[in-house]
Design a protein around this nucleic acid. Sequence first.
DNA 1: GTAAGGTCGCTACACTATAACAAAATCGCC
DNA 2: GGCGATTTTGTTATAGTGTAGCGACCTTAC
Lengths: 171, 171
Amino acid sequence: MSVFAHHTHDFAANPDAALQAADAHFQKTGVRFTPLRRRVFEIILRAGKPIGAYDILERLRDHGKIAAPISVYRVLDFLIEQRFVHRLATINAYMACVTPEDPHAAQFLICQCCGSVTEISDPIIDKAIAEGAKTAHFQVSYPLVEIMGVCADCVREGKTPASGCAPDHDD
Amino acid sequence: MSVFAHHTHDFAANPDAALQAADAHFQKTGVRFTPLRRRVFEIILRAGKPIGAYDILERLRDHGKIAAPISVYRVLDFLIEQRFVHRLATINAYMACVTPEDPHAAQFLICQCCGSVTEISDPIIDKAIAEGAKTAHFQVSYPLVEIMGVCADCVREGKTPASGCAPDHDD
DNA sequence: GTAAGGTCGCTACACTATAACAAAATCGCC
DNA sequence: GGCGATTTTGTTATAGTGTAGCGACCTTAC
């Protein structure tokens, strides 16, 4: 039992299902899901963790595709706009949204030790931000929450960010 | 009456007072507030809004100081560690903390139209994030909240991010 | 078929940040 | 004051991230 239990699919863990869902979605909406866009989305999905724009570029090239950075960024803009991909500003990386069909504000738990990122969707955080912004008469378009720290696994191993994320010695 | 009313000083609006407070703080703690560090902090304060590292560099040079980017970044790291400056990851810019003496989690309201940034410190948001992270057994070191949207002033002028932040036409 | 709009390729470039090593300033100690 | 250790800054070079501008191509609508 976890906080993520309400997610019906974890697309990040199931690239094929996510791709099929995307195919269906774009078929339905009429928005063009071109081979390049599909390929980039697939690369992000299969990465299984946040991936940089230039890493995506490299993997495109591995598959014989000659591409320039701008091509990748254009596709990323598209996928972000379509809410299939999130951008992580603090680490300049991109990851697949776990529940693209369900519009939601997301929060990200970024482990400074192992680099893993967990997407959560906590309505309490979301509501708190909405209220805070409303008090300041600020009209929110996109609330970005990136929580830096140490994930449960790394905490268990005694790692800390201060020690460069090696197990902490008390010397 | 605003949400910021509890701030005893708004240092961003009063560079001289902020500099004096910084002098006193570093005098007291024994941490070295060198001329370069003081100069960079002053530049950030006088900017009155978020400023990029290379803009800081340029202003250093305006004052006859020859400096390389790395010098600025080193000072920024120092000022951030000392909690006198915040880094805004979404816009790659730096701004003075409004209440450096009072350790707090901050949230930022970033206007996509006029570029203004307002720092708030909403304990409800902070608590919600702390709780959410706790549920995921995640040990927080730094919660980053950058809320993109349109500030009160720009909303009043009918601006929207969709329209490239020009007043919105209903055509 | 043709015009219009969207997508992609291509070249070049701007912006953001760091590495590695040397020189200089500062601090603690005698 | 002199000396070594530490911290800060300078210097040069380079890595990493993101865009501009323009033309070709492809798709769609008429």
